[in-house]
Amino acid sequence: TIKIGYLAEIGLDIIFQKLTTMYYAAAMAQDEINAAGGINGKKIELVLKDAYADQALIEVEAYKNNGINLIIGPAFSSTTIKIADYAINNNMLIMSYSATSSAISNLSDNDLIWQTATSDLYKGKVAADYLYEHGKRRAAVLYRDDVFGQGLTDAFQTDFELLGGSVVKNIKYPVDGINFSTYDFTSEISQLFSNGDIDVLYFVSFDSDFIRACEFLKINPSFIAQKPQVVLAEDAEIEKLVENIAPTITEGMLVFEASALENDPNRTNFDRNYTNKFQIDPPSYAHEAYDAVYLIAYAMIKANTTDSAIEIAEVLRAISGSDESITDETIININEFEKAKNILISNGNIDYNGASGEILFDNTGAPGVATYNIWEIVNGIGIKISTITIMQGK
């Protein structure tokens, strides 16, 4: 068998189920590839390990000692950064399925650190553009004190201020070792309003910490008086927000969701296959986990190696459709592994369009095209008010 590492922070109990169901998608890709004959007649095997806290680096070292040079994961940006140096120094390829921090995009990584989830460089720009176009000029940001929070905050602030807006306050809150069910956000919430009136509150948070922060926001006198637009930068279940947050906050709230284009047949087919197999809807980033397995598999065939991370990295842009020197690619959709394999074995070229949409890896190793749905909560119901697609350099 051909072994590929798979890292997920499954020791983090609060979202254990979500990380597990993301892995289901990768396992589904593994099973599909093996059912179609595998690679060079060999099956692939995902070796799942826990990447929570200090365990991540231990497992990466263990992968290396066992001859595994290709790793899908981990889920979090902070964990990806933590293992990056070891991976780079030991010629290992990392492809995270849900890490989005721009700090990853900016690494000097010898082209060994990749992301199938779109970089926050794009998400920050989309949010800044949308809010400025809709009349917002003075923003305050509450963000997680980690590489994800800092990276997205920096991206949003840079673009918002380039447009002519002003981020009047950036306030971070701790995340390491914090139990958000009891954390007191009183100080952070008060500081958001300490530099005068604001018309938008931008939260770079996960849903659990955001919900807790809103308990303190709803009773803050400045929030009650100013009524700024509340924006959640990260994907979240609208129903969960409505159930757990006061309507004085949720009414008119915006949520930015990374997505494929609406009615994309690959996403539709993936969703159907996943639901039929596991009897649940796919979670956020399941599509990106699925695509990571296929991208590495196709790159193995293209590079004619199953263990050289450097050689596999060299062809990832070619099989994702972003190598402009290649003009004769055949578009490959999901569930077309045999077709793609035959083309690659014959020295042909493919452009893999996955469950998450087009990939088109950019020069940082992240998808070069990003699509975001913008949801507004109205009367307790999420309404999709806009879909925005942005490409590298646009």
Rank of each mutant, 00 (worst) to 15 (best):
G5K: 06
Y6H: 11
I10H: 07
D13Y: 12
Q17P: 07
A27P: 01
M28R: 03
Q30Y: 08
I44K: 02
V47K: 11
V47Y: 11
Q55W: 01
A56Y: 04
I58F: 10
I58E: 14
G73L: 10
P74F: 01
A75T: 11
I81W: 00
I81E: 10
A84R: 02
Y86H: 04
N89V: 09
S98F: 08
S98P: 07
S105I: 02
W114V: 01
A117V: 05
D120A: 00
G124R: 03
V126A: 08
A127V: 09
R137M: 08
V141R: 02
G149A: 08
G149V: 02
D159T: 14
D159V: 12
V167D: 08
P174Q: 06
N179Y: 07
T186E: 12
I198V: 14
D207W: 13
E215F: 10
N220R: 07
V230T: 11
L232V: 10
I238K: 09
T250N: 11
G252N: 07
M253N: 07
S259W: 02
P265N: 08
F270S: 02
T275S: 15
Y285Q: 11
H287W: 13
A289R: 05
Y290S: 05
D291S: 07
Y294V: 01
A297D: 02
A297R: 00
Y298D: 01
A299E: 03
K302H: 04
T305M: 06
A313D: 04
V315G: 08
R317V: 00
S320Y: 03
S325K: 14
N333K: 14
K339V: 02
N347L: 07
N347T: 01
T364N: 11
G368F: 05
Y372N: 11
V378I: 14
S386R: 15
G393D: 13
